[in-house]
Amino acid sequence: MADLFVAGGIVTALEDAAVAVGRLDAALAGNPLRRAWTFWSELDAARRHAGADGRKVDLFRLAAHLHGLPLRLGDTASAPERGREIAGLNYAIELRSWMAAPDREQQRLRDIALDSLRDCGGGQPALVATAQGMLEWLAGQGSRPAIRAAVPLYLRDRGITIHRLAAVTGGDSLRAGPVDPDGFTVRFLETVGREAAEGRDLLLTMEREWRQARLRVDHRAGARSNSRLPAAVDLLAASPLLSISALAEALGCSVEGASRMLEALVQLEVAAEVTGRTGRGARRLYGLKRLLPIRAETTAVQRRARGGPRGRPKRVLIAPFAELADDAGVADATPDAEPAEPTRLTAASFDFDALDRLIAAADERTRGVRRLLDRIARGDKPFPTADGTEEPGAA
């Protein structure tokens, strides 16, 4: 077996990146939240990629836009500014489709980029070969979204990872920087290490939030072995945003029963209604409480609890999925200490069939958004109303 040669200035960055990627991949093994983590990682990666391409978007506004929620627009924003933001959000959704639900042309270009990475992989460690392959691809005027989407697939193809790590793309290395190959390689490795570390922090935070929600619900359910509230919490934790009808279909219960379960979880301060919509026919979406800032980004009529303060809920200015401390002493821990792994919840009660149905519904919605954007790009009417099968608000 030939020895792999790595330049001295790259060794440290390579070691750090390899350790971070390995930790993330190991944390995802057998994890019930892996699919939910993949969704949010793809969405956050699309946000970062749009920023690297000069279009800054907000993660919570992107999530609301992806789910078809009307966005709140600032009173001081001009019409061109609003148009640029909507264009940026649409661009980020387009970037996510390269990873989540590529069309035929995107898949073709992604496969070409993947083959290009494979051709550059001889005699170098996988991460270094990925950096050099990306640099050669860009030098040949290749598509940026294609090469970014190909990176997780290539790492899995080389046996470096077991899973397709949606968070690890090296996309931020495409920002302006040194033009020499070694400089780009170091920047790529540092980016990969940072992406993997942030992806692992996100997963641990989601696990911790799920554990805290389950503990609160289990305490409420008590000895009732037939309670479906724990299963509802599992689906909320493992899915992006959940509607009442989707929960009813996943659990095999009535819509009224699913609505009561979600309202009970809201009362327990475990879940939050992120749309704020009212009315029997309104499409209301729910998520765990950390997703409440999405609600502040929509224009739907805001509902308030009886006796509560009036007005729109305050926007929480925190990083998405910021670390949740188990107790007050966690904040005083030394920064160099390795974060303790949260106690894993038993997966015996987790309904993976229900989760599969939810993921399939989310993918179908993504494809619907892409079809709508394609019609607008062609200059057609967004919603055909003559003999077409789609009507406004059909979703």
Rank of each mutant, 00 (worst) to 15 (best):
T334I: 05
E256Q: 14
A354S: 13
S227E: 02
Y154K: 03
D172P: 00
P152Q: 08
F350G: 00
F5H: 13
L317S: 13
R72K: 14
D326L: 15
R214C: 00
A237D: 06
A18D: 13
P342H: 01
D16H: 07
S78H: 05
I359Q: 10
G177P: 02
E341L: 13
E391F: 15
Q212V: 08
R82G: 11
E85A: 05
L345C: 08
L153M: 09
A231V: 00
G22C: 04
K314G: 12
V179K: 13
T130H: 00
R304A: 11
A360L: 04
I147Q: 13
E297M: 14
R144V: 15
A139S: 13
L62V: 03
A221T: 14
R175P: 00
L241T: 08
H65Q: 05
L174T: 11
A196W: 04
A213W: 07
A337H: 05
D180F: 09
A322N: 12
I162E: 14
A113T: 09
G393C: 04
A17Y: 06
V316F: 07
C120F: 10
T334E: 14
S349G: 14
L358M: 06
D157G: 09
L59D: 01
L236S: 04
A248Q: 06
A17K: 10
R214D: 01
P32I: 11
A146L: 15
A139T: 08
S225Q: 14
V168H: 05
L69N: 08
S97N: 15
G279M: 03
R108L: 09
A197Y: 02
S173A: 15
I318C: 07
A340M: 07
P80R: 12
D218G: 10
P70S: 10
R228N: 03
R220S: 04
R35F: 01
L265G: 05
D201F: 06
C120D: 13
L262C: 04
A237E: 08
V369P: 00
L265S: 05
G9D: 12
R277C: 06
K381Q: 11
A300I: 00
A129W: 02
E42Q: 12
F60Y: 15
A146G: 11
V301L: 12
R187Q: 13
E391M: 10
P125Q: 06
L189T: 04
P152C: 05
R375C: 06
